[in-house]
């Protein structure tokens, strides 16, 4: 799973020379290439994994974006301007999808052939998860003192971290079904943490 995807070769639109689908520029004529249909990990030149080095991810992203800066294309043809913009947009999408642990887990599981859809209309009836979340949301709604709220917010944050560790372990052990359940759980925990943070901020603002 950690081996980089094999490079696929296509023809450069400009000189027809061979160019890798993930390459930003043709190595023969130097023309900027279109984004092509490749996965986010390949696009950013990193091995598919949940446990990403976020600094390395950011370095890759900014490194590529620098080479696509509009200033560098000011004197180029409109086709090259358009292609560089399309590349920049695709890199943005890839970076946004991979830097957030929740989106990354869902994307990686899809990539590994085990779809987890966090955007669809579907509903779940995972009783254990829902009862636990119902209780936690109720506890948060009923909490009134800033101390109580801060405690619940801290608990929520640490559960988010713990869940991310469990997702990592499940994916590394190829337990994708379990990783899928944990990803939905992470979505709920992230929501709880977000609500707790918001309530904490409001509580602190009070005189």
């Amino acid at each position: 799973m950690n081996a980089p995807a094999a490079a696929q070769i296509v023809s450069c639109w400009s000189c027809k020379g061979p160019v890798a689908t993930r390459a930003l520029f043709c190595s023969v004529c130097g023309a900027v290439q279109g984004p092509g249909t490749i996965d986010h990990f390949t696009r950013l030149g990193i091995a598919p994994s949940f446990d990403l080095d976020l600094d390395a991810l950011q370095r890759q992203y900014f490194g590529f974006q620098k080479r696509l800066h509009p200033d560098r294309f000011a004197s180029k043809s409109s086709k090259e301007k358009a292609l560089s913009q399309a590349q920049a947009t695709s890199l943005n999408e890839a970076y946004e999808a991979l830097k957030d642990p929740l989106k990354r887990a869902a994307y990686l599981l899809n990539h590994l052939g085990h779809p987890v859809d966090l955007t669809a209309c579907g509903t779940i009836n995972d009783r254990e998860l829902l009862m636990e979340q119902m209780e936690k949301r109720e506890a948060l709604a009923e909490a009134t003192s800033p101390d109580q709220i801060a405690k619940l917010a801290m608990e929520a944050e640490s559960e988010v971290i713990a869940c991310q560790c469990h997702i990592s372990a499940a994916i590394n052990a190829s337990h994708l079904e379990e990783a899928g359940h944990l990803t939905i759980r992470l979505k709920y925990l992230a929501k709880l943490a977000e609500e707790a943070r918001a309530k904490k901020t409001r509580a602190l603002r009070l005189p």
Binding site: A120, T123, I124, N125, I184, Y188
Partner: peptide, 11 residues
């Protein structure tokens, strides 16, 4: 009935 929508984290 207890249901959830993962899209929003609703319960």
């Amino acid at each position: 009935g207890l249901v959830g929508a993962p899209a929003c984290g609703d319960v």
